[in-house]
Nucleic acid binder design. Sequence first.
RNA 1: UGGGGUGUAGCCAAGUGGUAAGGCACGGGACUUUGACUCCCGCAUUCGUAGGUUCAAAUCCUGCCACCCCAGCCA
Length: 552
Amino acid sequence: MREELRPPNNFIEEAMVQDLQSGKHASIVTRFPPEPNGYLHIGHAKALLADFLSAAKYGGRCNLRFDDTNPSKEETEYVDNIMEDIRWLGCDWGEHLYFASDYFEKLYGFAESLIKRGKAFVCELTPEQMHEYRGTLTEPGKRSPWRDRPMEESLTQFRAMRAGKYREGERTLRARIDIASPNMNMRDPVIYRIMHVSHHRTGDKWCIYPMYDFQHPLSDAIEGVTHSMCSLEYEDHRPLYDWFLEALDWKNPPHQYEFARLNLNGTIMSKRYLRRLVEEGYVSGWDDPRMPTLCGMRRRGYTREALRNFCEGIGLAKSNSTVDTALLEHHLRESLKASTMRRMAVLDPIELCITNYPEGKTETVEIVNNAENPDLGTRNMDFSGSVYIERADFAIVPPPKYKRLIVDREARLMGAYIVKCTGYETDENGEVTRILCTYDPDSASGKSGRKVKGVLHWVDKETAMDAQIRQYEPLILEDAEGDFIARLNPHSLTIMKNAKVEKALSMATAGDSFQFIRQGYYCMDKDSADERLVFNCSVGLKDTWAKIQRSK
RNA sequence: UGGGGUGUAGCCAAGUGGUAAGGCACGGGACUUUGACUCCCGCAUUCGUAGGUUCAAAUCCUGCCACCCCAGCCA
């Protein structure tokens, strides 16, 4: 008896369900096929999670296959990092790790068989001629003079290509399809080219390499892939994908499905630009916290859960779209709030002096690490008559609906006492230098029923640590003409250098990265993604946030 | 001007002839040891547009408009 299949979440899963129910496929096989020429970014996460999760959902498997057919761009360094990032996202390819380069011999065989069937020929057109012969979007192409040469001749020449008898560009193997097709991809596309380049895995064994359009459908077929997902720009390639499988009489061939890439507001996803940022030294590396790479986001404090839920939330569809980063941040907050310890940090400190607090007295107050999660326990903080609070938490002339400290009003120091402002001191410029208060000794946290509207985060003046936090500026990207392209992570941190943090947060030192999310939700990450803390501060308040936006 | 796609709210997105899900954002309120969190409430008389078919159309038909992709021996 067939198990009940879980309802599909998108049109591709719908196709999977149909294929399973109709018996077309006994089980689902997908694949994630990165080219090892860069690091994975959040756009890849969308694709890879779709590949791995939908296969898992329907009891199938997902292969990891590196599409390494262009040795001039690919390196082993990337292979290792890509695998690490996929694992970090919680995806597992089990034994099914493959390389397109593993299939070079088979693919070569397929190419010969295409020649023997009269469906491919060796062409001697130069790159310039080939371009000219291909025609344009509105005019059909011209047939290559080599198109109808005898099959034996093509075979001999193709073997000579493999044997290294020609220089790069002197010969190509092309599929014999339709040079006049309105679909440019069908105009006798090149399927093998000569490259006297050493490959990161096969070394110098080969000097001819298959093209993507030829390799991809066949690699899928070799692996038994049933549902091959890719991005929208390959829609025009699908006829070609099908053509190769048809030409080789492949039974029950895989099918290609296309969906829209992820675009994120204010973020660039183009590998070309990301590479430039790294290579030209605008950022410290692929894992710079401002980068939208998976390793960069990990360093900034993103959780895999946030990324997975985000990708699930945006869905899979065919319309080009740009997702608001607010949605990403929502999922990060959601993922962090129940699982993370809170700490207090004062980013723009001003001293608050409690004038009726006994001289020289210190005490310890117990503060919960996360009010929503008792399992996270409590911590003790030093408290004395002098603390730092946020400059923005005190106002001489309060804006409408201001709930925090003003003269003659009470507010609670979080986890400690209720204080009442009695006055303030200023310097010669009129800048507030110290806030004076009295406290109510009977208002200790949890011991009094009194409620006040304002609650402030604070750190003890004597025991607070200085935070040496690197300050990042948003990175503005321009193209060669100086035109604005994008701001890289405009939402990531901008933290004041003279911040004060409580002792428990002293692990925040130079090089740590922070992510601005909203009041109460900064997250940080000290290399290990497990050392994640959230700290309370007020920079997320609307007025302050507006100020940050304006000044940048 | 050839071919392939896509248009549902500020942003994603369901919807497959029976009277517009959900999330984010936003607005209002309650609660609150931060204004966060939580909880309520509100948020498309209309689906790019103009016609047509039908008792009934976001869904079917026709025309038009807008945007994206394709002329690598890249993937």
